[in-house]
Nucleic acid binder design. Sequence first.
DNA 1: GCCAACGTTGGC
DNA 2: GCCAACGTTGGC
Length: 150
Amino acid sequence: MAHWLMKSEPDAYSIDELELDVQEPWDGIRNYQARNMMRDKMKVGDDVFFYHSSCKVPAVVGLAKIASAAYPDPTQFDPEAKYYDPKSSPDNPRWMLVEVAFVRKTKRAITLKELKAHPGLSDFRLNMRGNRLSIFPVSKEHWDIVLSLE
DNA sequence: GCCAACGTTGGC
DNA sequence: GCCAACGTTGGC
């Protein structure tokens, strides 16, 4: 069972919205590395940290699970959609998504500041310079450390 | 709002 | 295939 971190801007989609929706297609990913991980590596039942990015207090705010295999992101075919990709077509889709299910909120927000301060997380991807990938794997070791801060 | 990091695009 | 220009991400 693998572990992941998925970023979302809370203004766009927050952990509270996922709690209400229960399960949601993670659409709008337009990065090949992130797509490949969703398509090739993610399995139903994998654990996910839900992370709020580009906001006042960047932090891990909840837990989720991968709830579907990867399938084509329908927003790429919709000319009205923000994530429309005219170079993609249904017979040859370029972008994939997985569905994500709410598990629980963390007891409190585990802030980026705290994560950066933890000696055991010096090589945690979130703490690395120029980390822009919105989805990445988390080792079991890092997973447990982050949760221990809860 | 600034800026560093990094991905993508397109001309050559 | 190189690389400059440009766009986006995301912390601060």
